[in-house]
Design a protein around this nucleic acid. Sequence first.
DNA 1: GATGAATGAGGGTTCATTCAT
DNA 2: AATGAATGAACCCTCATTCAT
Lengths: 212, 212, 212, 212
Amino acid sequence: MRDTPIRRRKDARPAELLAAAREVFAAKGFAAARMEDIAARAGVSKGTVYLYFPSKQAVFEALVRQAILPNVERLEAMAAAYEGPTADLLRQAMALFPTLVRDPKVVTIPRLVIGEAGNQPEMADFYRREVVERGLGLISGILRRGAERGEFRPLAPDTVAKLWFAPLLLAVVWRTTFEPVGGAPLELDDYLRTHVDIMLRGLAPEGGTDAA
Amino acid sequence: MRDTPIRRRKDARPAELLAAAREVFAAKGFAAARMEDIAARAGVSKGTVYLYFPSKQAVFEALVRQAILPNVERLEAMAAAYEGPTADLLRQAMALFPTLVRDPKVVTIPRLVIGEAGNQPEMADFYRREVVERGLGLISGILRRGAERGEFRPLAPDTVAKLWFAPLLLAVVWRTTFEPVGGAPLELDDYLRTHVDIMLRGLAPEGGTDAA
Amino acid sequence: MRDTPIRRRKDARPAELLAAAREVFAAKGFAAARMEDIAARAGVSKGTVYLYFPSKQAVFEALVRQAILPNVERLEAMAAAYEGPTADLLRQAMALFPTLVRDPKVVTIPRLVIGEAGNQPEMADFYRREVVERGLGLISGILRRGAERGEFRPLAPDTVAKLWFAPLLLAVVWRTTFEPVGGAPLELDDYLRTHVDIMLRGLAPEGGTDAA
Amino acid sequence: MRDTPIRRRKDARPAELLAAAREVFAAKGFAAARMEDIAARAGVSKGTVYLYFPSKQAVFEALVRQAILPNVERLEAMAAAYEGPTADLLRQAMALFPTLVRDPKVVTIPRLVIGEAGNQPEMADFYRREVVERGLGLISGILRRGAERGEFRPLAPDTVAKLWFAPLLLAVVWRTTFEPVGGAPLELDDYLRTHVDIMLRGLAPEGGTDAA
DNA sequence: GATGAATGAGGGTTCATTCAT
DNA sequence: AATGAATGAACCCTCATTCAT
């Protein structure tokens, strides 16, 4: 009733525009994406985009916020609620990523942020604070928990957090940058499972066995 | 110092221009970099750049080639010449990277390639083939060697190679994208030492001890 | 007068722009004509021209087509419909030219084509096929008709067609190239009447009298 | 001796440069011809051209003067010396043109003048006065002589002169503009012989027979 | 709200001309 | 005389943004 396909709710417009923007940005990068392309892909005219976003940069910012933050929050909630062996928590957390890295809504963004960092430092800063640091802090916390419980060797948690994170970044870059130009598709599940396996073994205290 | 202004200059110009281009590209990305900026930073006029490179893209390509290929070749040579415990070879190889990742001539490039992949697929393809695949192939080979000699668990070498590689990518992105906007400096030596330590432990066969 | 400034304008714009382009091209030639000049003379901004024509060459091509083809078609129609003494047909056909040669929309074009032939061979080829060859073919046909009916000497029609045509070319060149720099105005009517007179006498068979 | 092929007389340079300029201008038109092209075709460096000509326009002017004037003078000399039937004089004069129209040094120039008239009015004016008006004046004089001797009908000599001239212009345009893009080669000798034949018949007084 | 014609600043590229060697 | 590296003005074209309808 209140969603006739012919006369769409105007509330849906921003999201539609962001979806269109994501596709165009993903295909051409920020600089080469034309507002007209975005409008066309959303099925509206050029002027209409400006009714919802004051500028191309604003579209980009909205896109980044919308696509990433919910996932960070979901992860944080999972970690906060968890009780049990730390290794399992890490396994569970990493298990979320194959889906995310396959989701174009998500995987597209980091590449754009990296590419635009020079021109849009505020955006890069925002992304660093709200996504990267929060994500790393989350892993650090888990690692600290594991070290305190004697499950892991006591390595510097901030450093190890980055090492947990790095293969995810590689996966994102691989899929967005190298697969489109002929790179062999990444076997995400194997890849991340191996990652977790090596990391947990590598972190295990001298005597104990940790990886199940 | 010894600046015969004209004739001697000619030979040095391409390198000077590439250095200038690297700085400008690093600061603004490919699209936003203006040829005039590059020229000005090299101390010449706009037209002069075109005496040495036929287009902006050509500058970019020359930059990528010049900055990266020699390093890949150096690594390959090192691996080919090596005899001894495989773990030591990996340690030696990884020990080269702190210098590389600190070298602006090198660290700048991957970010540009990632940012421009949409617009310059050939460049991304070139980089994939000549840098990424060669680098991964190198590590794969080392891992295979290690597995054959019974030094490592027999995990899929192509997958593990990416896991060795991933922290380097993160280091590059960190330094180029997040440090400039307030990220805490990466402690490269610690970071890579920890990486090697965890990986070698994680790869060690069940009974044996490998990490020193 | 009735100048609804926007919406009604859109349909008129191409013609306005072509008129402006013709004036600028006529004054400076193709190469030296600046898009900005054309825009300014049409009372619009630079970018507007590109809403209607994708490039400077496209403006030129549209101009040539629009200015010339209708006249060729008109002549062909006249010849096809004609019955009566062939000499009269030639007189009638040539009587159309004073108007055409005085029309700046028409007379400007051949000079541009001649001047640009080196750089725009396709344009020259188009003009040759669609204007020159068709025009000459028309005259050839008429001459053949006259020869068959015994009204003319049987000279090679293709050759004689060019001789009928040549004074028109001279008239065009004279008006566009030499009058503006001090050449005495061409008395078009006299000039062409004399041309027809001499040609018809010159073509008349030995005994017969044909020219009135 | 004084013309070792290795060390050419510097006196030859201007002529060599003009020959090169003619070829380049002929191929691309004035605007699109690059000084570097001219230099390269003459086998010298860019700067050298400026030792002999102060600018691109100056090259063009020198070219026009050098290529055309001698021919006009030759024609005038022929006419001044002539005694005999006027028709024969015209025949002899026209017989010179097949050679001229085939000579690239000559045939190239008018097209350039026509194309550049807008931008170089002085050049067009020079050409009009020194070539066109002198040529037409020459023919006018001959026609007047013929009319006075009762050999021709008393038509306005200035008008008829243009009609004598027009086929030559067409021949020039044909060869330079349309032959290169697929026009059938002009049969110059036939073409001009027919021209002379028709004109002389057309000019002949009522009763008399003039054409041999 | 929606449109899309219009704007005009901006940047890549070319090339006539200069001048130190 | 000759070179050719260097200059910088000029111009085509793009596209983010505006605004009258």
